Computed example of a mutant assay.
Amino acid sequence: MAILDTCPGITVEILSNGNPLNEYADTDHDRTKLPAGIATEAGKYQHSRTVSTYVCIPSSALPSASSAPSSGPGTAAQNLAPKFAIRMTVSPPYRMDSAKLRFDMAVDGIPVWISHCARPDYNKLVKTKTPWVEGVEGVKEGKGRGCLMRAFRFGKLDTTSEVDSSAMIKRQRMRMSKVGTITVHVHRVNFGKRGGEIRSNARHFLHGDEAIAEKALKGESKSHGTVLGRPQRATRGPVWTTNYKDGREHPLIVFRFLYRSEEALKHLLIIPRTPSPSAVTPAASDISDAESASMLVPGEENHDLNLSEYTSAQQREIAVFLANMKRGNKSGDGNVKKERIEKRGKRTKAMKVKSESSGRDDDLFGRGGRSATVPAGKKIEIDLTDVADGDEDEDEDGD
């Protein structure tokens, strides 16, 4: 629910199927910091009064604006896209200090309707603890019994690479700069007089047979635009002509909604991306002796291994290696690696250090995998009588 902290009680929401869409803060918009390019006093003022948020389009908004044959507006593809509406609410603690509040609404840069909240009506509702609420569901055209409404719908943008006209691309780029945005300007106004015209034109919205040049959307993470449903008979409602109390360039609040698909919001890093699942290689310390024994069932992968010659820790290392091979994580010839592991294990088993002073045998690599410390000046002898076959080739004739 978009709200300005300096005007609590005035809120605007975008609904789809009667439910408010999920909102996410527009981190690129900071009301307290003036961005480059805003030079006028009116621009600075409006920037400080703007509440900007992203809204996520429901996943059901899959049909594109041209996913079905079309000869104009009101096509089947447009009617499949989900409807949306703009809902405005005024409630305490806001205290109305003008005759009316005026809500000027625009969708994709196109004016669609003007709503008024009158102070007498609002004060009556406050006494009953009921908020003033009004919703706008589409574009209205005509008067009296001839009034027709065409509902707002999210339409997926279709792109094409076949447009090569620079003039066409320029026109579409200017148009696309406003697509994907819903704005509501709230003004303090006088009571005004009944009657007047509503500035809206259904012809300015996207149609079902329209494709946008890819170059016109270059650099823009926009996924949808607004299309209109089929015309339906509707009640026009009251129309008023009012004057701005603070001037048109000085609204009380500006609500700006940037509507995008979930995928587009992930691309913009507004919604965190779901990390891709990755295979986890087990560590030898995470495998128990029982688990390693179950992995090392005699078979074609380990038929040439004599496991009784290895310690429990070495068996776990071999189990991890074989498990990774089964996952397809091997590199090179698997038989060569198994032979190297067997030789390494036997060599480790055979290499013992015998201290002359104590006569005690210590593992060359120490206990627990740590290097053994040999006192300075002490002689050591290395017993290689149990070296694995194939490792003694260089020394078998040296006696």
Rank of each mutant, 00 (worst) to 15 (best):
T159E: 14
R175P: 00
G74W: 05
L258N: 02
A264C: 10
E141P: 03
T274L: 13
L268K: 07
T385N: 14
G195Y: 05
D383R: 15
M1C: 03
A2F: 02
P82Q: 08
L80E: 12
N123C: 02
K266F: 02
N306H: 14
L148F: 09
K100P: 01
R119P: 00
A76G: 04
V90C: 15
G135R: 12
A284G: 03
S221A: 15
Q232V: 08
V139Q: 06
V126D: 01
E317H: 09
L62E: 02
A372L: 13
T40G: 11
L15C: 05
K222Y: 06
E392G: 07
K100A: 12
E214W: 07
S60G: 06
D333A: 06
V139T: 08
G135Y: 04
K124C: 00
S177P: 01
A313R: 14
E394S: 15
I14Y: 03
V320H: 06
R248H: 11
N79K: 05
A68C: 11
G146T: 06
A211L: 08
E394H: 11
R119V: 00
R49N: 07
P73Q: 08
E396P: 01
D397Q: 09
D395S: 09
A283H: 08
Q232K: 09
H303Q: 15
T385V: 12
E141A: 10
A99N: 08
R316V: 00
P111L: 04
R119H: 01
H29G: 02
E317S: 04
F84M: 12
S166A: 14
G135T: 11
V107K: 10
Q315T: 07
A319V: 03
T89K: 13
E41K: 15
G135C: 11
R145C: 09
N123A: 01
F321R: 07
S358N: 06
E291L: 11
V336Q: 15
